[in-house]
Write a protein that binds this DNA or RNA. Structure first.
Lengths: 114, 114
DNA sequence: ACGATAGGTAGGCAATTCCCTACACGTCAA
DNA sequence: TTGACGTGTAGGGAATTGCCTACCTATCGT
């Protein structure tokens, strides 16, 4: 926790919502598109979607590009790369299950594996 | 969005807080430990930490094991493995930068690469 | 049995979230 | 230039978050 983790806070918080994750998936699978097109997929008023897009923008997960009266949104995956980096030191904790190097973790009383 | 993503919501929301991420790091780097030991690292009253632990528990990110009057908390990395799985389809969006397979993404007007 | 210790729960409070309706702003078409 | 269109912003309201100060429960040592 050197800085404050404020940026990571914003990225994880942005991902902690199904609507916003679905926006990311749409931009990933269907490419950059305007708010109009995105909105078709949600049962929600436009201003609400606008606010979700703002959260994604402020987390750096999407960028917008003005095209006439439209705003084309595009996926920006870099924060997700950072999430993957953050995840990395935890990997051995589930690779353990697959490779059986249990004793990497200090004495774990394996009698409660639930 | 087949189910509701409610579980993923809980995991990402749990990670969207520096205190909780620090708890996970401590459990990762120093092994399972009691609330006492964890609490030393935070400028916060115990009940607040208890609530953070509850959030982590409900997200499946930690488990507790009673030992006398102590509760030993342990990292449970499976939800993090799920996050990595979730991340996977996005990888090509930053690998692209490194490997130059830009045209995998449907026509991206690359005039705005920032 | 008594008090101290470890930790959770209750309830309060300010701030934030996520939805809404109303409105403001820039752009395009006529 | 007048209007319709595409989006964002303002402001409100219910629910949730993250902290706090009590307080309750369970275990341990004596």
């Amino acid at each position: 926790m050197t800085t404050t983790g404020a940026r990571e806070d914003r990225v994880f918080a942005a991902l902690a919502n199904a609507t916003r994750r679905e926006v990311l998936r749409l931009l990933r699978d269907e490419g950059p598109q305007a708010v109009q097109a995105l909105a078709e997929h949600f049962d929600m008023r436009r201003p609400s979607l606008s606010e979700h897009l703002k959260v994604l923008r402020e987390a750096g997960l999407v960028s917008e590009q003005r095209a006439g009266r439209q705003r084309i949104y595009r996926l920006e995956a870099e924060p997700l790369a950072e999430v993957q980096d953050w995840l990395h030191p935890y990997e051995r904790f589930w690779r353990r299950r697959l490779k059986g190097l249990g004793d990497l973790l200090d004495r774990m009383p394996d009698d409660e594996v639930t």
